[in-house]
Design a protein around this nucleic acid. Structure first.
Length: 843
RNA sequence: GCCAAAGUGGCGGAAUUGGUAGACGCGAUGGAUUCAAAAUCCAUUGAGCUUCAACGCUCGUGUGGGUUCGAGUCCCACCUUUGGUACCA
């Protein structure tokens, strides 16, 4: 028997591709290029899960399709291999993270190769390789030289359990994203990157990118641009001013009090003696609060009066100055003018502390709420009265500027990027401290390698693990010979992934991060696919670095990723659970109305698919799927499940379905007794009945690949095979074209079939078939005939008469059933849509 | 709360610019093959009504309205789910 045996075929071709370097990236730059990139994985100990191959199969299909269309394709993979898990494992077991990482990478590589991805394996990059992080450090030096990297004493998210500082995005609900440990605020010396300097560009240049609107919107929200004014308020009795930022300068007449963040620099100097004690107590309280506390207590506003008064420049009124933690030190100027009439937070605060409220915008008549934030004419606002918000804003700003007490201003939510971590397993900074001042190392000192250490824990005082490596820390300044101390922080995991797409272009280049000649050819990335979890951070950070490199003249494009798609998460199998959370089998459950119920009862049952997780026990291991059904089936199923970007539940039954399809393909072309090409595959001229389904498939598959609609492309391939299975003879030319268009989806079986069809060379570079509209034409067109919008009959019209309105309408009216309906009333309207439909309106 | 996306059979999902809703696959039912099973092949499969049967009819794309000869698709209001965000002045 020579039935379809994916195991044999797949290992054979994977070996062939590797040995022959089939997917080596071409180095000639004469042909059009296509750079198709995957988000490289963190090689975890758990190995690949079924989520990885989803995006990877999509890009692989594109890569293979583009090669067959004559493009030079760059399709690389690598490892984002710095990271906390390997370090935590090292803390526990003493195993060097390098050892763990290497082992995991080998496992990942093996798994990826077993799925038949057409990566150029000579271009792997590994962020933990000194030859790679040399250039990460080099880019950091450039950032430093440009003044974009600086040290600062900042309140950071300190996680005592992990012994490290976390970035805001690594803190979820006041706990560490990894491990769920409590996080507190602690001031520490840290490296920062001035991403805020690029805020406007990062926002503006989103426009030209071919990214989903929702993704762009997420980045816009993260950057959080707001336009308004800065206004100075004199403090009564002091030679001080409080500067505030507001998006609603038009409401200034309603500013009845002011609030400073507890950390504001003027708090101490303006507090009166009577209030000093209360102010100090409040400050202490606020400082102790963790993020979690601030959020939990956020429902109830708190604050303390400083005893000081400011002068509202609009009307000269004395207004009290308070401190409250609902005003953030890190946004705007750390102080606000409170306008309770038009701001919900201020209203709440004013109500609680009995502060005056003045409306300065006339609410709609039926408005019943408290603070009014909608449109309306200005009231109680002196010279602004009657103006709408936009006009009033403009006029206020003009007035402020004239008086010299304020100016138009723009603010961003985006903060500078906290760029250091107290960890071992990360890139060391190319920085030494001489006489207490930071100093960059010269390029010739790169890479600064990670030292060997005995233990991987932080010192406990917050000193990073590298501080334990005394011999390494204590060094000399190569320029002056002075004693120096190395920086012991390391870079965050994001660093390596900020520029890896450039390294693939020239992985061995030693004159810089990327060879300019090839950079110019390959950039930008034409298609980038990865998980939505990186929608904001990785993509924002990478864009930032890229723009810096662009400004330095090191890259030729201002944006790295032209088109970007997020694949949707794959959930576990659909599960039915009762109120107690116990799993039920399909047989125990039925649908009743809108709900699922326990069979024969009214007891509702929850029916849904859950995120895959070890604790739930619903994790699907791709290795098992490959063992059972083969890599081609895995690939095909992952693409057939549904639209790439959508979240969708896994179904192993579905894998069986596509596996059956591949079996049908095999039996269509191979004689299972001999293992040779089936005798019904003949070198004869193809007829219309063969060519029509074939070209329909070619057309649909081509268009759907271009549009990343792989699920419907596969459906078209299935339709062709269902049709072809009914043929007595399969023309060889038709068989070959079909094998070609199936190839990007199921590369192993198609290589094998191509070989059986008598070819020695790989199919990977054979031309993609073109479809011919001629073959798609129908001999006869079927028109549905509607009476008052309901289909009552179908008529068949010869193709050459199909566009002839009079002819088609006449045909329609002759139809017996149609005539019957027409007899019941008068024909008032005839609608004829060529090639589509006939509708007769009868009354 | 705010922002964004999405609601279609038992399930995953199809459906050009508004033009026959349910392609393709899973599951299910019946049949063929088999000593039997697996595999394979054939047929049926949105719900309901009528009929000996064929034909036919009614309803049906989250809910309620609207526009149109015609709405899954467009407009208005609402409900639900998912993702993001969270005192950002």
């Amino acid at each position: 028997m020579h039935s379809y045996k994916p195991g044999d075929i797949e290992t054979k071709w994977q070996k062939y591709w590797l040995e022959n370097k089939t997917f080596e990236t071409p180095t000639d730059t004469s042909k059009p290029k296509y750079y198709v990139l995957d988000m490289f994985p963190y090689p975890s100990g758990a190995g690949l899960h079924v989520g990885h191959p989803e995006g990877y199969t999509a890009t692989d299909i594109i890569a293979r399709y583009k090669r067959m269309n004559g493009f030079n394709v760059l399709h690389p993979i690598g490892w984002d291999a710095f990271g906390l898990p390997a370090e935590q494992y090292a803390v526990k077991t003493g195993t060097h993270p390098r050892t763990t990482t290497e082992k995991n990478i080998n496992k990942f590589r093996e798994q990826l190769q077993a799925i038949g991805f057409s990566y150029d394996w000579d271009r792997e990059v590994n962020t933990t390789d000194p030859d790679y992080y040399k250039w990460t450090q080099w880019i950091f030096l450039k950032l430093y030289e440009k003044g974009l990297a600086y040290e600062d004493e900042v309140a950071v998210n300190w996680c005592p359990e992990l012994g490290t500082v976390l970035a805001n995005e690594e803190v979820v609900d006041g706990k560490s994203e990894v491990g769920g440990f409590p996080v507190v605020q602690k001031p520490m010396r840290q490296w920062m990157l001035k991403i805020t300097e690029y805020a406007e560009q990062l926002l503006e240049e989103l426009e030209e990118l071919d990214w989903s609107e929702s993704l762009k919107e997420m980045q816009r929200n993260w950057i959080g641009k707001s336009i308004g004014a800065e206004i100075n308020f004199e403090v009564s009795g002091y030679d001080e001013q409080i500067k505030v930022f507001t998006t609603r300068p038009d409401t200034i007449f309603g500013a009845t009090y002011m609030v400073l963040a507890p950390e504001h620099h003027l708090v101490d100097s303006i507090s009166t003696d009577e209030q000093k004690e209360a102010v100090e107590a409040y400050k202490d309280e606020a400082a102790k609060k963790s993020d979690l506390d601030r959020q939990e207590l956020s429902k109830e506003k708190t604050g303390v009066f400083t005893g000081a008064y400011a002068i509202n420049p609009a009307n000269g009124e004395k207004i009290p100055v308070w401190i409250a933690d609902y005003v953030l030190a890190s946004y705007g100027t750390g102080a606000i003018m409170a306008v309770p009439g038009q701001d919900e937070r201020d209203w709440e605060f004013a109500e609680k502390f009995d502060l005056p409220i003045i409306r300065t915008v006339q609410p709609d008549e039926d408005f019943e709420g408290k603070a009014y934030t909608g449109e309306g004419p200005a009231i109680n606002s002196g010279f602004l009265n009657g103006l709408n918000i936009v006009e009033a804003k403009k006029k206020t700003i003009e007035w402020l500027e004239e008086k010299g007490v304020g100016t138009k201003s723009v603010n961003y939510k985006l903060r500078d990027w906290l760029f250091s971590r107290q960890r071992y397993w990360g890139e060391p900074f190319p920085i030494i401290h001489v006489d207490g001042e930071p100093k960059p190392l010269p390029e010739s000192e790169l890479p600064v390698r990670l030292p060997e250490v005995d233990k991987y824990e932080p010192t406990g005082t917050g000193e990073p693990p590298l501080a334990n490596a005394k011999d390494w820390v204590e060094t000399t300044d190569p320029e002056t010979g002075k004693k120096a101390i190395r920086e012991t922080n390391t870079m965050p995991q994001w660093a390596g992934s900020c520029w890896y797409y450039l390294r693939y272009i020239s992985p061995d280049f030693d004159g810089g991060p990327v060879d300019p000649d090839y950079e110019n050819y390959w950039m930008p990335v034409d298609l980038y696919i990865g998980g939505a979890e990186h929608a904001v951070l990785h993509l924002l950070y990478a864009r930032f670095w890229h723009k810096v490199l662009y400004d330095l003249g090191l890259v030729s494009t201002n944006e790295p990723f032209q088109k970007l798609v997020n694949q949707g998460m794959i959930l576990g199998e659909m599960e039915y659970t009762n109120a107690e959370g116990e799993k039920l089998s399909d047989e125990q459950v039925e649908k009743k109305g809108d709900d699922f119920v326990l069979k024969g009862t009214d007891t509702k049952v929850e029916a849904r698919a859950h995120k895959m997780s070890k604790s739930r026990g619903n994790v699907i291991n791709p290795d098992h799927i490959i063992d059972e059904y083969g890599a081609d089936s895995l690939r095909l199923y992952e693409m057939f499940m549904g639209p790439l970007e959508q979240v969708k539940p896994w179904s192993t039954k579905g894998v069986e379905g596509v596996n059956r399809f591949l079996n049908r393909v095999w039996r269509l072309l191979v004689d299972e007794d001999t293992g040779k090409i089936h005798s019904k595959v003949k070198d004869v001229e193809a007829q219309k009945k063969h060519l029509k389904p074939l070209h329909e498939a070619i057309k649909k598959v081509t268009e759907d690949i271009e549009g990343l609609r792989f699920n419907t492309a596969i459906s078209a391939l299935m339709i062709f095979v269902n049709e072809a299975n009914g043929w007595d003879v399969v023309p060889e030319s038709v068989a070959k074209k079909f094998v070609k268009i199936l190839n990007p989806f199921a590369p192993h079986i198609t290589e094998e079939l191509w070989r059986l069809l008598g070819h020695e060379e790989t199919l990977a570079y054979k031309g993609w078939p073109e479809f011919n509209e001629e073959y798609l034409k129908e001999d006869a067109i079927t028109y549905p005939v509607q009476i008052n919008g309901k289909v009552r009959a179908n008529i068949s019209v010869p193709a050459e008469k199909a566009k002839d309105k009079d002819y088609v309408l006449a045909m329609a009216k002759e139809e017996e059933k149609v005539a019957k309906y027409m007899a019941d009333g008068n024909l008032v309207k005839e609608i004829f849509v060529p090639g589509r439909i006939v509708n007769l309106v009868v009354k």
